[in-house]
């Protein structure tokens, strides 16, 4: 059960071309579900969604905490759990991921490790600019 997505190209201000591992994922809240684009980030502990999206889909908040972003400065954030649907064609699967919702509104959606990466063996194939996913079925006894 494998599928892949192409990196997406952009040109930096410096003129260099860069390819980024973006993925399509459906966020499912208590109000509605929304198809979104996120950056798959193996360096991020948690997934991040903006407050405005959390309000639209309906996220049940579990608490508050601080996260350290790319500036290294802690940012106050709410925490919650949402359902997501991810995959391609017949290989779609549903599971829950914890999310943080920063007070700062203008954030790109980030799909981090917790709740997401344990569902797949993920290969970042830089040379071919592709991300490959192989579904992993959790051992319920562990």
């Amino acid at each position: 059960m494998t599928f892949s997505f192409n990196y997406k190209q952009t040109i930096l201000k410096s003129g260099k071309i860069i390819y980024r591992p973006l993925i399509p994922i459906t966020l499912i809240g208590s109000n509605e579900s929304l198809d979104v684009i996120g950056i798959l980030d193996s360096g991020s502990d948690m997934s991040i969604i903006p407050k405005s999206i959390a309000e639209v889909i309906g996220v049940k908040y579990l608490g508050e905490d601080e996260i350290s972003g790319i500036t290294g400065k802690p940012i106050k954030s709410k925490q919650g759990v949402i359902n997501v649907e991810f995959g391609k064609d017949r290989e779609k699967t549903n599971f829950q991921i914890p999310v943080v919702i920063p007070e700062k509104e203008d954030v790109t959606i980030i799909i981090g490790r917790l709740g997401f990466f344990q569902n797949f063996d993920i290969t970042f194939q830089e040379r071919k600019r592709k991300i490959h996913f192989k579904r992993v079925f959790k051992n319920i006894w562990n």
């Binding site: 952009t10 930096l12 860069i18 973006l22 929304l34 979104v36 203008d106 790109t108």
Partner: peptide
């Protein structure tokens, strides 16, 4: 399908 594309800086 909605998303915020990353900034054009590394």
């Amino acid at each position: 399908l909605i998303g915020k594309l990353p900034e054009p800086t590394p």
